[in-house]
């Protein structure tokens, strides 16, 4: 009897809510309409003729991520940091990583080989994210897979062989964050020192703010000013963050 009433209430709630939302969408343009602000980013992100609004990144999404709306992404990274802190705060006390031997030389060296391959692809996805799909978060996820694959296929005890434990992962993560925060603060420090206008997380020089990171680093295939170094910082942060999460959660699982 009670269940029956609850489901009637549920159906009523869902029908009401979805019809209200559908009503709100009645006047919206149909699928396939790109708003002018999106076209503005597309037009300007890698516009060689008029560089006053460009981000020097052929990938418009990457340009948005760390240039046009970089301050959003900076704090999105910090939200991810809170997620890691959640797992670390609740499960850190239980983490005791013990070295387990017993793997043959073949297993060890092949694991190392695969590890190197995965890490290389993580770096590639991060660095070339200005020209191809990808980015710091994506690269970091792949980097974490290198470690998680080792945890899953060999054992957690193999990680000390790779010179990694929770403490070191935390330190590496903080190094990544320090890189991101440093690149954010440099324009502000420049502004304080020189007295000219510069804004936090400013990437390229603008007509109204002269500060800028170098766009081309000698060889033409790399561009985007701060985008590549800051993406590397995010990659380390995310990769290490995922590794910490999986390590702590799996350790907890076993000891209970």
């Amino acid at each position: 009897m009670k269940d029956w009433r609850a489901s009637i209430l549920g159906v009523f709630f869902i029908v009401l809510m979805s019809s209200i939302l559908t009503y709100a969408f009645l006047g919206y343009p149909g699928i396939g309409f790109v708003r002018p602000l999106g076209e503005f980013y597309l037009f300007n992100t890698y516009n060689f003729e008029n560089q006053s609004w460009w981000s020097a990144s052929p990938n418009a999404v990457t340009g948005l991520l760390w240039d046009y709306r970089g301050y959003d992404t900076l704090y999105e990274t910090m939200v991810f940091y809170v997620g890691i802190a959640a797992v670390a705060m609740f499960f850190e006390g239980h983490a005791k990583l013990r070295k387990t031997g017993g793997m043959t030389v073949i297993v060890r060296s092949s694991a190392r080989l695969i590890f190197v391959f995965i890490i290389t692809s993580a770096f590639a996805i991060t660095i070339f994210s200005i020209k191809t799909p990808g980015g710091g978060f994506q690269g970091g996820s792949i980097m974490a897979i290198a470690y998680i694959a080792i945890i899953v296929s060999l054992s957690r005890g193999f990680l000390p062989e790779m010179d990694l434990d929770v403490e070191k992962a935390h330190l590496a993560k903080i190094a990544g964050l320090a890189l991101i925060a440093g690149l954010t603060i440099v324009p502000v420090v420049y502004s304080l020192a020189s007295g000219s206008a510069a804004y936090a997380l400013q990437n390229l020089p603008k007509a109204w703010a002269p500060f800028g990171y170098p766009t081309f680093l000698g060889f033409a295939s790399l561009s985007g000013g701060l985008i590549i170094p800051i993406q590397l910082g995010e990659m380390i942060h995310v990769g290490m963050g995922f590794t910490i999460m999986f390590l702590l959660l799996t350790l907890k699982d076993k000891e209970d």
Partner: peptide, 25 residues
């Protein structure tokens, strides 16, 4: 296609992961 919409989704996905980690813990 619109990069701004993609940007919002990328950001929200990362934030969603943090939510899941917090709530799971």
């Amino acid at each position: 296609v619109d990069p701004l919409a993609h940007y919002f989704v990328v950001t929200a996905v990362v934030i969603g992961l943090a939510e899941v980690a917090t709530l799971t813990a």
